[in-house]
Design a protein around this nucleic acid. Structure first.
Lengths: 250, 250
DNA sequence: TCCTTACTGCGTATCTAATACGCTAAATAG
DNA sequence: CTATTTAGCGTATTAGATACGCAGTAAGGA
């Protein structure tokens, strides 16, 4: 029960701080702070999250926050766990592929509510309660595949990376689009202007095929890209499961 | 030849600015600035890259830089293209799978030289000369697969996302490890302390199997993870190529 | 009950960074 | 030779993180 040995941020995420007995009643709670920061980020983006703005939102002074978090980075870590609410548990008896697709859609939906999530730096392997719940959920989907535990972890880590990467790209592009739509609709034309077919023959071929000529609705396009790439990765997992099963049968 | 219609950053990346005739000779060039910024980031990390530090490195004043770049963000965009030197062209007649593996290893090597690269925000689809060269290289590897151009683009975009995501995670974790190695070696123990097997059965199973008990050398582990995930994705591509080939045969 | 002490909120001050603005001087076009 | 551009740069403004220390509060012990 020695919380002292746990990394500070982990203890905070699980709210394991030994509640101090003496002194004034805190008028702020960690939950308040994290919630306010998340609301601010939702409303005005991650860049708007400053200690001062968060404190203002709570009607407190800036420095009061530092009684509850060691630094802004620590606050960001707490936000990153709190933003992902608990996953819906997977329906029972579902096959792994359907399960992981369901899971990936869930991640996408959860992060869509907090687009800044994809911009946060990764501070370590999943350790907060919500992140671990998602991790558990994905691992659980692989329950009946016969993969050894270590392989499940590898598969899920790769999937997380893929999913978060795809989301990050999609949101960054969408943000760039909102900022300067012209640059995007011109994309094909711009490339055509700049690409020398002798230097970049494959890009030139793509341009000639007109792939970049019209960029449809971003939301739809990126949703399609997301699922397309996801299916590729899931096909890869299927091949891997097959391979491991055969090795084992021998 | 109207450069005016090109997005400003693209024109800069391709160095298409119409060289001003009048006025004093510039003592700084854009290349100097970008090179200095990259050296600084290599040496002390992205956080050390401030306009002041870059200028200092060049023996100029801070504000002089603003004659060449509109903002720090623009400088970051220029850095992100300049940091990826040209790819080695793929050996001729190589099959797509070997080609993409070679390509992915090349990306990994290139980014390893500039670890901050993985932290940069994505500002748009590839548009700089170096980024496009890598894009071309990957597309070229799929030349003989019979995939339609649009599908090639989708496959390559997904691959880029996967590769960069994996690299980002690996470097962030490595940075976290350097900062606080204890937190990593304790990871398994920490989870064991905090995980309730009824709440997170799959994670508990992984812990019981001892998967997180010893975390080997990070460089090696992440290299293995990188290739493992890459192979999964490539298996997925193989399945996709197969499928498209069959559809076409019908 | 009163004192000790841990703990809270917060004012102040410092440091770092981005960048707007406007001046001066250098080239070159005409 | 003058008007026009443009480079470099000094100054000042704004924003943000966070160190430091004071003052008041409430629980535990005497």
């Amino acid at each position: 029960m020695e919380n002292s040995e746990l990394p500070a941020e982990v203890a905070l995420m699980w709210r394991l701080r030994d509640t101090g007995r003496r002194g004034p009643k805190p008028s702020l709670t960690l939950d308040d702070i994290v919630r306010a920061a998340i609301e601010l980020a939702d409303a005005e983006g991650l860049a708007a999250v400053s200690m001062a703005r968060v404190a203002e939102r709570l009607g407190n002074s800036t420095m009061a926050l530092y009684r509850h978090v060691k630094s802004k980075d620590e606050l960001l870590v707490l936000m990153s766990d709190a933003a992902l609410e608990r996953p819906e548990p997977l329906p029972d008896g579902i096959d792994w592929r359907t399960g992981l697709t369901f899971w990936a859609d869930g991640v996408l939906t959860a992060i869509r509510r907090h687009r800044w999530y994809a911009k946060l730096p990764i501070s370590g392997p999943p350790a907060g309660p919500n992140n671990l719940a998602w991790f558990d959920c994905a691992l659980g989907a692989l329950k009946d595949t016969g993969l050894p535990e270590e392989a499940k972890v590898g598969v899920v880590m790769g999937l997380i990376t893929y999913v978060q990467g795809q989301i990050r790209v999609a949101f960054d592009l969408a943000a760039g689009y909102d900022e300067n739509p012209a640059a995007f609709s011109q994309y094909g034309a711009t490339l055509a202007r700049v690409v020398d077919p002798r230097q970049l023959p494959a890009v030139a071929r793509v341009l000639e095929a007109g792939v970049f000529d019209e960029v449809g609705s971003f939301e739809e396009d990126s949703e399609q890209d997301f699922h397309f790439g996801l299916q590729l990765y899931l096909d890869g997992i299927a091949a891997f499961i097959e391979r491991v099963g055969q090795d084992r049968a021998r």
